[in-house]
């Protein structure tokens, strides 16, 4: 049985999305990182790094939310969320890494300063610096989506899920999506699948 550790205030939500897409059975362990539960011994046995989400699946024990999604797709989504062809698989790996290294540092940086931190210690300048890094990155998505419906081609794959879950987080801070019409339509179509 697959167990996903982390509650809905963590990046575990992106793994829930993947698990639901795949239709596999799983259970949740609602470790609450906001109450220090990720630093308790029980959880440290799963991830000594004390971060949620983490996932166990038989003898598989892993962390890193986007990596978990790739693992799940390649294990349970063959021919679907994990395409059969090399080009499609390449797209899944590339776009997931792009999401983790090019997009998320800036989205998370902005979210921390604009909504996650207590108001008294927020730093608007840091948030704006993060947001200023986004246009060239989002333009890569806009350009890519100008001639296709999904990042890897004609169908929804792990590439789309792993980028959309990060880009969509910008809705929490009222980000202006109007310069990116293709990307906006794509994010909406992806997120609508979550139901």
């Amino acid at each position: 049985m697959i167990t996903l550790y982390g509650n809905d205030r963590s990046r575990a939500t992106r793994n829930v999305w993947m698990l639901e897409e795949l239709g596999v059975e799983y259970e949740r362990n609602m470790v609450d990182h906001t109450k220090g539960e990720a630093k308790k011994d029980d959880f440290l046995k799963i991830n000594p790094g004390a971060k949620v989400p983490a996932l166990t699946d038989g003898d598989v024990v892993m962390f890193e939310s986007l990596a978990i999604n790739l693992y799940l797709a390649m294990t349970y989504g063959k021919g679907g969320l994990w395409p059969d062809d090399a080009a499609g698989q390449a797209a899944c790996g590339q776009w997931t890494m792009f999401s983790a290294t090019e997009v998320e540092p800036h989205t998370v940086g902005a979210l921390i300063e604009l909504i996650f931190k207590p108001e008294a210690v927020r730093d608007e300048a840091v948030a704006q610096a993060c947001l200023a890094k986004l246009p060239p990155v989002l333009n890569v998505l806009e350009t890519t989506l100008s001639d296709r419906d999904y990042l890897g081609g004609n169908s929804f794959t792990a590439a789309d899920l792993n980028v959309a879950c990060v880009v969509n987080s910008l809705n929490m801070i009222g980000f202006d999506f109007t310069p990116y019409p293709k990307m906006t339509a794509w994010v909406k179509a992806c997120v609508a699948r979550q139901g």
Binding site: G58, M62, A67, T75, M97, A100, E104, P105
Partner: peptide, 16 residues
């Protein structure tokens, strides 16, 4: 599976 999971995990850990 366990080995592949760790390959993906550590690669993302390295990048992120």
């Amino acid at each position: 599976d366990a080995g592949r999971a760790r390959c993906v995990q550590w690669s993302f850990w390295a990048g992120a």
